[in-house]
C-alpha cells in the first residue's frame, strides 16, 4: 500500500467492476448485458494486476499474472457460450431481451421439456 499509483489502479479496477455490474442490471439487450459482463471481468483483472505491483521497488509478483491469464481464457469461453446462446435464443424466439423481470411468477416458466401429442 505504498504508492499512489497502486491505489489509483486498485480503485479504478473496483470502479470498472461496479460500472459493469450496474450495466448488467440496468440494460435489457442481451448483447449489452454480455458486454457488461466483460467489463466486470476487466475490473477484476485490473485489481489482480494492481496487486502484483503491491511490492514496490521489487520485481512484480507473477502469481496474479498467471491467474489473470487463466481468468481471460475462462472469460473468453464464457463470452463465446453466452453469445452462442443469445444467437440461438434470437433465432428461436426472435427476441434480443429476456421477457419479464428476473423473477417469474409461481406458475410461469413452464416445466415441460417435451410434450408428446
Amino acid at each position: 500500500m505504498v504508492e499512489t499509483g497502486f491505489t489509483v489502479y486498485l480503485l479504478a479496477g473496483a470502479g470498472v467492476f461496479i460500472i459493469g455490474f450496474h450495466a448488467l442490471l440496468a440494460q435489457a439487450h442481451l448483447l449489452r448485458r454480455i458486454m457488461a459482463l466483460n467489463v466486470m471481468g476487466s475490473g477484476v483483472f485490473m485489481v489482480f494486476i494492481a496487486l502484483s505491483a503491491r511490492t514496490a521497488g521489487e520485481a512484480p509478483d507473477p502469481v496474479p499474472h498467471a491467474m489473470v491469464l487463466t481468468g481471460i481464457v475462462v472469460s473468453v469461453c464464457a463470452t463465446g457460450l453466452a453469445l452462442a446462446l443469445a444467437d440461438r435464443l434470437q433465432s428461436v424466439t426472435g427476441a434480443t431481451e429476456l421477457e419479464g423481470g428476473p423473477a417469474p411468477g409461481p406458475n410461469a416458466g413452464s416445466g415441460g421439456e417435451e410434450s408428446h401429442p
Binding site: 448485458r33 459482463l37 446462446l85 421439456e113
Partner: peptide
Amino acid sequence: EALTATMRYLLVSLPASL
C-alpha cells in the same frame, strides 16, 4: 422456455463467478 431459462441461469452464474 428452456432457452430463456438457460439465458437467465447464465446471466446469474457468470456475474456470481466474477
